[in-house]
């Protein structure tokens, strides 16, 4: 077993939104800083660095987690998804993103990537949520602009749309 020494930069490789990426990180480097400043995917934002605001929510191996509560070196070999991976390659917004757009579910947009990543994960596992479910599912993401009402509406609308889409397939 290898001990990665402090004050040295170690190679970290993982899959980011389906593409292999790599960079160098000291053991203590947070995954947020690595994704943003080493890889350059700045869509994931940093809001509190103690796991409460949810702005940095990403998916690691298909599960929504706080990127500020992970070390970059812990991402080695993982499959990571961030907000940049949500839209189609041609830029077409996903059903969830489009619902956010239609519903005025973002204002400054700083917390939005975290909400989107939480909801992508939640709706995948809970395709038919009630409003109360959505509110509890979102209780780990802080937004100070919208008052959440339109975010909750967007989430419910997206859930219905995703359901209808998968039913028609």
């Amino acid at each position: 077993m290898q001990v990665l020494k402090q004050s040295e930069r170690h190679r970290v490789r993982f899959t980011l939104n389906g593409e292999r990426v790599e960079g160098l990180a000291e053991p203590r480097m947070l995954l947020t800083d690595f994704i943003r400043h080493e890889i350059g995917a700045t869509g994931t934002h940093v809001g509190c660095e103690h796991g409460i605001c949810g702005a940095c929510t990403i998916r690691v191996n298909g599960k929504a987690v706080r990127a500020c509560l992970m070390l970059a070196v812990q991402a080695e070999g993982k499959e990571i998804e961030t907000v940049e991976g949500l839209a189609a390659k041609d830029g077409t917004l996903s059903a969830l993103q489009a619902a956010f757009h239609r519903n005025f579910a973002l204002q400054c947009g700083y917390c939005t990537p975290g909400f989107l990543m939480s909801l992508v994960d939640y709706l995948e596992k809970n395709p038919n949520p009630t409003e109360a479910d959505i509110r509890i599912a979102l209780s780990g993401n802080l937004c100070r602009c919208t008052g959440y009402a339109e975010i909750v509406n967007a989430a419910l609308e997206a859930a219905r749309e995703i359901q209808a889409l998968s039913a028609s397939k």
């Binding site: 239609r102 973002l106 939005t112």
Partner: peptide, 19 residues
């Protein structure tokens, strides 16, 4: 009218200072 600000923010292409 839908917000013209949204598309980049929704795709993670916003440009905040630290970005």
């Amino acid at each position: 009218v839908l917000r013209v600000e949204n598309p980049p923010l929704l795709r993670g292409h916003g440009l905040f200072i630290d970005d």
